[in-house]
């Protein structure tokens, strides 16, 4: 025993603080969340097993005319639009800045990255001002060209699309930086060989650059998918009360179930549905993009 302590004591001491907070605030919560999703949980009385055990999952999908289903479909639409546009736009912009001088490249990367250091909440607030019905910049542009103003964030048919457009118009800074780094590490002989074979710039880009940065594409697709599935802050601030359920997403639903209805069981069930969706999409993406390229 004493030998064990002198040999390994330091190692355990080194990981102890991290493992302690990790256990209390991550490991136990993950497991507990799973348990609560099968319980009727009240803040006053604690948890009792639900009957039938999957009752919260049924309630999650059926309460208030199945708004959770609407929230899932809103989230999926938001996610598909943002992931596709972010990855594509990131790839195009990174390709365009790649041939520029070092100074210009640094300038564009910094310009794209600058807004990204602000919170999603603040970006959302700023967009809410742009979309403001009376004095917003969006309607000002419409007035300039003689069009009728649009109720960007208060018309239930438009509000979710306004939110999506605001995300699409936020330049995907991470994608530009990562693609740019990946392109910089492709050996130049590949391009020289292609040039000898008479390949033009577009051909070289499509046949060399794009395939060789596939692992970056996969990584970005996964992180943008996760981020878009978890969208909450900007929706909370852009449409504080929701527009006739048309702007509900999975996380706004979790928030409402837990901290407006105080139904922790249903909220946990919804959170686990979110986790399953993210895991499924991530596995799917790994299969599509699987790459064995080494260079």
């Amino acid at each position: 025993m004493r030998k064990f302590i002198t040999k390994h004591g330091w190692s355990y001491l080194f990981i102890l603080p991290s493992m302690l907070t990790f256990t209390v605030f991550t490991l136990i919560p993950v497991l507990w969340s799973f348990v609560i999703s099968f319980q009727r949980y009240s803040l006053a009385r604690g948890g009792q097993w639900a009957n039938p055990f999957y009752a919260n999952y049924v309630t999650a999908f059926t309460q208030t005319q199945g708004v959770f289903v609407r929230a899932i479909s809103n989230t999926l639409v938001y996610s598909i639009c943002t992931v596709i546009v972010n990855v594509t736009l990131g790839l195009i912009l990174a390709s365009l800045i790649q041939p520029l001088s070092h100074k210009l490249r640094t300038f564009f990367r910094a310009a794209y990255y600058l807004p990204a250091v602000s919170s999603a909440l603040l970006i959302g607030m700023t967009w809410a001002y742009i979309y403001n019905g009376s004095w917003g910049f969006a309607n000002y542009l419409l007035r300039l060209v003689g069009l009728a103003p649009v109720r960007w964030l208060s018309d239930p048919d438009i509000a979710m699309w306004s939110i999506i457009v605001s995300t699409l118009l936020t330049v995907p800074a991470t994608a530009v930086v990562l693609f740019s780094a990946a392109m910089g590490s492709i050996p130049s002989d590949y391009y020289e060989a292609a040039e000898l074979d008479g390949a033009g710039p577009i051909r070289k880009w499509w046949s060399i650059t794009v395939p060789l940065i596939k692992s970056t594409t996969l990584y970005l697709a996964v992180i943008y998918t996760i981020a878009s599935f978890e969208v909450f802050d900007k929706i909370y601030v852009m449409v504080p009360s929701g527009v006739a359920n048309s702007t509900q997403t999975i996380v706004t639903q979790i928030y409402n179930s837990a901290f407006k209805d105080f139904d922790m069981g249903v909220a946990s069930a919804q959170a686990l549905v979110l986790f399953l969706l993210i895991a499924t999409v991530a596995v799917f993406q790994f299969r599509i993009f699987r790459t064995d390229v080494e260079y």
Binding site: F22, L27, P29, S33, I226, E230, I254, S268, A271, I278
Partner: peptide, 13 residues
């Protein structure tokens, strides 16, 4: 636990 979204631990935390 790296892949688990923070919303999953929100309620227990």
């Amino acid at each position: 636990t790296l892949m688990i979204p923070p919303q999953v631990t929100l309620i227990p935390v």
